[in-house]
Write a protein that binds this DNA or RNA. Structure first.
Lengths: 334, 334
DNA sequence: TTGAAAGCGATACCAA
DNA sequence: TTGGTATCGCTTTCAA
C-alpha cells in the first residue's frame, strides 16, 4: 500500500479510503486507481480484518455438498450475503458432529461476521463455541426446541406425518418407511419419527422400517432398501422414503422386479429434487424450498447484523424463528 | 492471548508456541491449555496470517456446486489438502468468467497458499492475477494448450470422439449430439467439437446438433432437447449427450413417446454420474474420476508447495500436467 | 525451554 | 479532502 501511495503521491490513508470508496476527490481517486493497476496491488484482507476488527466472512456449514438440497441452500445464502460484501466460508461436516466442531473452531479463528449451520445436532463444545462467538447464528432445515440463536426451517416430523396421511387417503394401510442407518442425520430421524407417530395414530399396525446406508442417502441406497423391504414384508402397499433419491432407487428396483408403480406398490419421496419431476413415473414427494431456506437464513443474519450495529430503521429484535412452508406434491408414483 | 498468558503465568510467546505445537515443557503446555479452555480463547487467524505472512487458505473455484461432478472434485481436494492444515475457500463461478475474475480477486486478498480452478477459460485479467499471485495454480478438468501453471484433466474432445466411435461400432450412422447452449462451458464445447470431428472423420454426413439450456446442464434439459431432435431429425439412430444428466432426461422423453431405448434409439451420456448406473435402462457413458481429479490436483499443489519451500526430499520440479484416465462404459442404453 | 521487542499491512481516530 | 499516528493480535527473531 505504501508503494501505491508513493506512486500516486498521496498517503497510505488516502489509498485506503479510495479502496473503501470513501470521500476523495475525483483526481486523487483516479491517480490512486492508476497506481493500483500499475502495480497490480491487491490489498491484504488479513491486515484489514485485524485493523478494523471485522472480517468479511460468513461461515456456512452443511452436512454434504453433494446433496443438491444443501448446495441449493448454499446458493440461496450466496445470493443474499454476497451483495453485502460477505464472503462465504463453506464447510462440509459429512454428518459428523465432531467434524462440525472442528470446522466451527477453525472458522471462528477467522472471526466470521455470522454463522449459518444445518440442523440442531451439535456437540456440547460446538454449542458453547457458537454461543461465545457473539455473532448471529442461524440453524437451518429444522425447528429445534432449544435453538442456539435463530432458526429457519420446518418440522420434518410434521411433514412426514402429512405424507403418511396422504398415502392413507389413497387407501393404503400397509405403509413402510425406507430410511438411512445413521443416527446422526437428524432430518432423516425426524422423518422416521413422523412416520412412526402417524402410522400409530392411524392404527395401521406395526411400523415397517428399513434403515440402510449412510447419509447422505443417494439413489444407490434405494434399491437394496426396497429389496430388503419386499423380502420382509412382501404385502406392503405403499412406501415412503426419506428422500427422493432413495425413492428413485426404490422405484428402479421395482421396475427390475416387474412391479408396477404405483399399481402394485406406491412409492413416495421427500424433498422435491429435480429428478422426481423428470423421471418416469414422476415421484410423489414433499416439496421443500431448499434455496429459500438459504435466502431466508441469509436475510435473518443480515437483519441481526443490522440490529447489532444499531442501524437506523433496523428493528431492534431478530427474527428468532422462520417457518418454511412445505407441501405434499401428488405425482404419479403414489 | 495476553489474557491466556497471564492466567497461565507465561509469556504470549509461550502460548503461541503451545498453540503451534512447538517445543514446550509438558507442565507449561498443560497450564496454557487449561487457561485456553478456561477463557474459551480462540486465536485470531487474521493476526497470525499477517504476522507470519502466510495464510492457511487454499482457493478453489468450480463452475457450479450443484453438479455432483464438481462437488466430488471439491471432496477430493478437501481430502488431500485438509490434512495439511489448509482450509478451502470455495467459490462458485456459475460458468461466468467475469464472476470468476471477481472471485479470484477477492480470494487473492486472503493470500491463499495455492489455487485450484476449473477449466481454462479465464478473462485476461484473471490470468494476470493468477500469474502475479506467485502461488501454485492448477487448472482442472481440461488439458489446455497454454495452461497458467499446472493442469489435471483430460481431453474432452478425445473422450467425445471415442464415444462416437463406440456408437459407430454398434452400427449407428445417424448420430446426434445434445448439448448446452452456453459458449462459456468449455468442457461442453469440447465434447461437441469431438463429436463433430469424429462424425466428419467417419463420413457420417451433416452433424445433428441440438443445443439447449444453460450450464450446468441438468436432467430437465434433456427432454426438450430430445424432443427438438426428433422433430428435426426423426430418423436419428443414436444420441450422445453432453452429460448423463441430459441423457437421463432424453431417455425419459423417449419413454413418454413410447420409444424403446436402445432398440428404437440409442442414448449415451458423459460423466458416469450415479444415476446412469441406477436408472433403467442403465446409461452408456464416459466415466471420469471427478473425485480423483480433485485428489490429483491437491497432490500437485502440495508437491509444488513443498518444492517452493525447498523441502528436503521434495522434487524440485512441479507436476506440470496430469492426464486423467477416462473410458467408455458400455451399459444398456447404447 | 522461555521471554522481550519489533513489525506484519491495514484502518480508526484525530488534526490540519 | 487529506495526512500522521497508534493499534489490531499474532509470529519472527534474537537473547537469556
Amino acid at each position: 500500500m505504501s508503494d501505491v501511495a508513493s506512486l500516486a503521491g498521496v498517503s497510505k490513508m488516502t489509498v485506503s479510503r479510495v479502496l473503501a470508496g470513501q470521500s476523495a476527490s475525483e483526481a486523487t481517486r483516479e491517480r490512486v486507481q492508476h497506481a493500483i493497476d500499475e502495480l497490480g496491488y491487491v490489498a491484504d484482507a488479513a491486515a484489514g480484518a485485524l485493523s478494523s476488527g471485522r472480517s468479511s466472512f460468513a461461515a456456512v456449514l452443511v452436512p454434504s455438498l453433494s446433496s443438491s438440497n444443501f448446495s441449493d441452500t448454499v446458493s440461496g445464502l450466496t445470493a443474499v450475503l454476497e451483495p453485502h460484501g460477505l464472503e462465504l466460508l463453506i464447510g462440509d461436516t459429512d454428518y459428523l458432529p465432531e467434524r462440525e466442531e472442528r470446522i466451527v473452531r477453525q472458522m471462528l479463528r477467522h472471526q466470521p461476521r455470522c454463522i449459518a449451520l444445518t440442523g440442531s445436532q451439535h456437540t456440547a463444545a460446538t454449542r458453547t463455541l457458537l454461543e461465545r462467538s457473539g455473532v448471529p447464528v442461524v440453524e437451518m432445515w429444522e425447528l429445534p426446541a432449544a435453538p442456539v440463536d435463530m432458526t429457519v426451517g420446518f418440522s420434518n416430523v410434521s411433514a412426514a406425518r402429512e405424507m403418511v396421511r396422504y398415502l392413507a387417503d389413497k387407501g393404503h394401510r400397509r405403509i413402510a418407511f425406507l430410511g438411512g442407518a445413521s443416527e446422526l442425520d437428524r432430518r432423516g430421524i425426524d422423518r422416521l419419527k413422523g412416520y412412526q407417530l402417524e402410522v400409530k395414530a392411524l392404527g395401521f399396525g406395526e411400523p415397517r422400517v428399513v434403515r440402510l446406508g449412510d447419509s447422505p442417502i443417494t439413489m444407490s441406497h434405494g434399491g437394496p432398501a426396497m429389496a430388503a423391504l419386499l423380502e420382509r414384508w412382501p404385502d406392503t402397499q405403499a412406501v415412503m422414503c426419506v428422500s427422493d433419491m432413495s425413492a428413485f432407487g426404490a422405484i428402479m428396483e421395482c421396475q427390475r422386479r416387474g412391479l408396477v408403480v404405483p399399481d402394485d406398490i406406491a412409492v413416495a419421496g421427500f424433498g422435491n429434487f429435480e429428478i422426481s419431476a423428470c423421471c418416469h413415473p414422476t415421484i410423489t414427494t414433499v416439496s421443500v424450498d431448499a434455496y429459500g431456506i438459504g435466502r431466508r437464513a441469509g436475510e435473518a443474519l443480515l437483519r441481526a447484523l443490522a440490529a447489532d450495529a444499531g442501524e437506523r430503521g433496523a428493528h431492534a429484535h431478530r427474527t428468532a424463528r422462520t417457518r418454511i412452508h412445505y407441501a405434499v406434491v401428488p405425482r404419479e408414483s403414489a
